[in-house]
Amino acid sequence: MKTFLTACKLTVSEYLSYRTNFILWRLRNFLYLFLYYNFWSAVYTYQKQIGNYNKQEIFFYFIVSFFLSDLVFSSKVFKLAAYINSGLLSKYLIYPVSVFKLVVAEELVDKAFNVIFSIVEVMLFVYLFKIQIFIEFSFYYLIIFLLALISGILLYFFINLSISLLGFWTNSVWAPRFISFIVIQGFSGAFFPLDILPDFLYRVVNALPFSVLIYLPMQIIQNKINFDLAVTKVAIAFVWVFLFYALSSFMWKKGLKNYSAYGL
């Protein structure tokens, strides 16, 4: 627990030591909200409805998905790839704390840090632009929503971890990361609700595990999915989580055997 607190303090100090970087980062986030507000307003100028969404619903979607994105997608796992490639991993392997625990700790701190600021940014934005956000749903929906969210966070974590662990076998992890970044975020529902896609494409994309990350929790919170279907999807999500967990476990063990601590 003590190590966790120290890790927290260190990460926060790290962020704050780059003043300009930090300010620009948060500015960018807030600006993102402003920009997409204008974007969607423009799109709806000549249309009243796109697919299942009217203007209000789309605003709701992009603001809440913005917050969820910060929660799900903020991650420091890729640092592991850099450690492996540079040989710095050796330093962490000798620590009395398991590397995995360190990675998880940093991840949680990063997400917490992001989420806190994200909430402030969203609230400020909603206040300034008078967006209507109200969420009302039953206790059971809340539970399934939280479960969906948790499965999304875990899924993204293990996918990222698997890709980072490719560092054991190749020096250029950046290429797979780039592709995964585009594909995952594109099909996660972070930028747009997946059901505005034409029917055939929608069914394909919905079947991919990435739709669980943002789109599924959004569907639940907007009451656009019936309860039983939601439960089934969340269950399938956890299966995906387990699959990627198994994959990263396997890669870690295999990779460590090959690891020759070179590079320094």
Binding site: K9, V12, S13, L16, S17, R19, F22
Partner: peptide, 13 residues
């Protein structure tokens, strides 16, 4: 001159 420690880093900000 940057101050050390956690609170130092917040001050230095």
């Amino acid at each position: 001159d940057k101050e050390s420690g956690f609170w130092g880093s917040i001050k230095s900000f």
